[in-house]
Amino acid sequence: MGYTIHELHEQLVKKEISAVELTKKIMAHRDAVEGDIHAYLSTSDKAALETAARVDEKIARGEEISDLAGIPGAIKDNMCIKGETCTAASKMLEHWVSPYDATVIEKLKKEDFISLGKTNMDEFAMGSSTERSAFGPSRNPWNTDYVPGGSSGGSAAAVAATEAVWSLGSDTGGSIRQPASFNGIVGLKPTYGLVSRYGLLAFASSLDQIGPLTKDVTDAAIVLNAIAGHDERDSTSIPQEKKDYRKALVRDVKGMRIGVPKEFFGKGIKPETKEAIDKALAFYEKEGAEIVDVSIPHINSGVSVYYIIAPAEASSNLARYDGVSYGFRAEGKDIIDMYIKTRSQGFGEEVKRRIMLGNYVLSAGYYDAY
């Protein structure tokens, strides 16, 4: 099975397949391969089949359906869906059930989307292989000896293995784009502020962004159409008019300018990587695009800046997990002992490392020295 959203939408509208049939087919395939892949942390089959039945009723009545209606997807387990667990792949939130929907989920529900479940990830999105999940790693469906990337590795593996037709991931420093490349699918980190972060469990608020993982670029545009838009509950959300991103998908590249940063071709690039990029640039030039050499002089500082901003914000955001209000709680002889034991036992090693680094970055002594 390698169907895309747009192909399946056509089949549903033409009544060549029903939403219930499609959902059951994907579920059966998911159950057959999931033991090898471990893309999911939880499933929501009952709700999925109920939504599929409603979509079939709409089609039977001759009603128009949205592009995503009745097409099974999956959601990274750091986005809130009311009444479902949202663990961020951490022992800290293993049994926490969300009391509300994230804005992206609200928008998708209006589209009659189907969620087959929540996907595996690096704990609190801190990692690049899905090996940092408290519930075990996901595996790459092309070769299960390899990782699917991260932190949205479960979301990417689910799409690549057709355990879902599409999925949502979150990207702080490459966590959609890198697993998409590892799995041979399309991943998009939208412009910051284009998609609301309300209901996304925060890692680094200045960098987090929700985006699609799909089989092709048309599907990525369809999902982006559904989730993009202004949200008053997110102070960084951009006021914007509704757009159809499929209109940007044109074959004609005449007159386009493609910037090629010289810093990307320095020491360390593999010959086969450079060869592949040069081949692509030659193709676009032949098709009428203008190839322009550009420079991003501060790009080499990017990783250093990331490792100041991201851990600093993470240490602040994760301070709320203290065993008092919700989530995992360890017993202690007093409140300070309870705090220490809760955070020591509830967080994994990578999360602890980033909290410690963030606290160091934010400390007064370090600030003065900097």
Score class of each variant (00 low, 15 high):
V55T: 05
D77S: 10
L201D: 05
Y367Q: 15
I37E: 06
A53R: 11
L168F: 01
D36K: 15
E275Y: 08
A276N: 11
V147K: 03
G365E: 15
G365D: 14
T130H: 04
Y192G: 05
K76Y: 00
E331D: 14
D122H: 01
L188G: 01
G2N: 15
M338H: 04
K242V: 15
I336M: 04
T4C: 05
P190C: 10
I37S: 06
K215E: 05
A161K: 12
E287M: 14
E349C: 11
I291P: 01
V324P: 07
F347D: 04
Y360I: 14
R257D: 00
R30F: 00
R251A: 09
A48Q: 03
V303A: 09
S167C: 07
L188Y: 00
F264H: 13
K215R: 15
G229N: 04
M126S: 07
D67I: 08
M1E: 13
R132S: 12
S175Q: 06
A48Y: 01
S115N: 13
G358N: 09
L362M: 13
G83L: 05
G187S: 06
L108F: 03
V351M: 00
K274I: 00
Q178I: 11
A364S: 14
A102P: 02
L318I: 09
Y3Q: 14
E290W: 13
G35C: 06
I258H: 02
L22D: 03
A74P: 00
I105M: 04
T273M: 12
D171S: 06
G127M: 03
I340E: 12
V361P: 08
A89C: 06
R251P: 00
K76Q: 02
K58T: 02
E34Q: 07
G193P: 07
R54Q: 12
A52C: 08
A369L: 15
D67H: 11
S235V: 10
E94V: 14
A228T: 10
K118L: 07
G62Y: 01
V165A: 07
A53H: 09
Y245A: 01
A221F: 03
K14C: 08
G348P: 03
M1N: 14
G70C: 09
I105W: 10
V20A: 11
A125Y: 11
P179I: 08
A74G: 13
L281V: 10
K91N: 09
D231F: 07
R197M: 05
N143M: 05
E275W: 02
S167N: 02
I17F: 05
I65Q: 02
V250R: 04
E64N: 13
Y40S: 08
D293V: 10
A134H: 11
G150V: 09
K109A: 06
R132D: 11
E287Q: 15
R233P: 07
K267Q: 15
I238D: 07
E275Q: 11
R61H: 14
M27E: 12
E64I: 13
A39D: 03
I59Y: 04
G255E: 10
T162S: 14
S167G: 05
W96A: 15
A32Q: 14
F265C: 11
Y307P: 10
K279I: 07
I277N: 10
F265T: 00
S344Q: 15
P99I: 07
I75S: 01
E163A: 08
L318Q: 02
A53L: 02
I340Y: 11
Y100R: 04
A248V: 01
G323T: 02
N183W: 06
K270W: 04
I336A: 09
L281Q: 12
K341C: 03
Y321T: 12
I227E: 08
Y192V: 04
F328A: 10
V165D: 09
